[in-house]
């Protein structure tokens, strides 16, 4: 299975989900993620799975809730406006500790926005777009290979921690074609004795009215899981940081542009590298702080008005200056703009 195949990001994610053993997909069409439901509608029946084009994103995430409550691996995908509709279900999944994978191939917003890739959903993804005290694991791939690899891994993470795992991709990544080596399944097994339909008369619920502190106790149970995830699941990439004077911080498609800018800046004799968070929650705060030691400045680059930059500031806590360059509305930052900004620091 180690052959390289040219695949669209969206298709690579869909096939990776099938490799991970996901047999239940529920979704509603929205650009730029349509290749995922289209691919699933064809592939899932071939492997004995079920595809339903739901009546809405709200229905889709609740179908995932039902499928997941049986212990089956299931997923949905959408793009920004649809992910907004899924927030109700995500909150309920988080409350009931049901594992599932949600892919957001995000687009420009707010509102209907446009259909180009964007990073305006960072706050929604990492701060919990739904109600209540909960977290979702958020993985941010930057190329098609990583999109496939992280989708596969997302199912293991979801089952291990009984959490919703959100893949935050963007329209550029979803639509782009790149050679991909499809990942191999991990083969990990998970105990799902909480599921319904296994003869244990289990309840999957989120209402806790009594005793008075019942919900508080449940919140602390969730917190324990989140604390564990914060120590155990931290992914990031460092690139050319060792001798760098300036640190670019970017995730997803923005990081690709930063890579280009770094090459050109280094050709001009300016030492730059990047720190690329891959888990946006948990955010690699300590690792970024360490990476920033001895640097002169951080430039955070996003396809938004500046959202992740808040986490970057939290990470370094005033120890070095943090600048921001971003462009919202489905536009891509150009390497030239990043180069110009960094040159202005000299």
């Amino acid at each position: 299975m180690s052959d390289k195949i040219l695949m669209k990001g969206n298709e690579a994610a869909a096939e990776a989900a099938i490799i991970a053993g996901c047999r239940y997909y529920f979704g509603y069409p929205i650009t730029p993620q349509n290749e995922i439901p289209e691919y699933m509608s064809k592939r899932l029946p071939e492997v004995g799975g079920t595809f339903i084009q739901a009546e809405s994103e709200t229905a889709a995430i609740n179908m995932v809730f039902g499928a997941s409550s049986t212990g089956a691996r299931s997923m949905t995908s959408s793009s920004s406006p649809g992910i907004s509709l899924k927030q109700e279900g995500i909150s309920y999944l988080a409350a009931a500790q049901l594992p599932c994978v949600v892919i957001n191939v995000s687009r420009g917003g707010p509102g209907l926005g446009n259909i180009a890739g964007s990073q305006g959903d960072y706050f929604q993804s990492t701060r919990g777009g739904g109600h209540g005290d909960y977290r979702t694991i958020v993985l941010a791939p930057y190329n098609c290979q990583e999109l496939a690899d992280l989708t596969l891994e997302a199912f293991d993470l979801a089952d291990e921690y009984r959490m919703v795992v959100l893949i935050l991709a963007d329209g550029f990544l979803g639509q782009m074609s790149e050679p991909v080596v499809l990942p191999e399944p991990s083969g990990k097994k998970f105990n799902k004795d909480w599921a319904v339909g296994i003869g244990r008369k289990n309840k999957v619920a989120s209402l806790i009215l009594s005793p008075e502190d019942g919900l508080t106790k449940h919140n602390y149970v969730l917190k324990e899981v989140y604390d564990k995830v914060e120590t155990e699941v931290r992914k990031y990439e460092e690139y050319m940081l060792d001798d760098a004077d300036y640190l670019l911080c970017a995730y997803g498609s923005s990081a690709r542009i930063c890579k280009q800018a770094i090459t050109e800046l280094r050709n001009k004799g300016i030492k730059v590298g990047y720190f690329r968070p891959i888990t946006l929650w948990p955010f690699p705060y300590d690792e970024l702080l360490n990476a920033s030691k001895g640097k002169k400045k951080i430039l955070t680059v996003e396809m938004s008005l500046g959202q992740m930059v808040e986490d970057v500031k939290l990470a370094v806590n005033g120890s070095i200056p943090v600048d921001f360059y971003g462009i919202p509305g489905g536009m891509i930052p150009t390497p030239e703009a990043i180069i110009e900004r960094v040159e202005s620091y000299e």
């Binding site: 239940y24 529920f26 339903i52 739901a54 709200t58 229905a59 889709a60 609740n62 179908m63 995932v64 809730f65 039902g66 499928a67 997941s68 409550s69 049986t70 299931s74 109700e88 279900g89 309920y92 009931a96 319904v196 339909g197 244990r200 008369k201 289990n202 309840k203 999957v204 619920a205 989120s206 209402l207």
Partner: peptide, 17 residues
């Protein structure tokens, strides 16, 4: 076995199950 759906979503949850 019981599964508690969000308000109005029971048919979707039942579909998934």
């Amino acid at each position: 076995d019981g599964v508690e759906a969000a308000h109005g979503r029971a048919p979707a949850v039942a579909t998934g199950i």
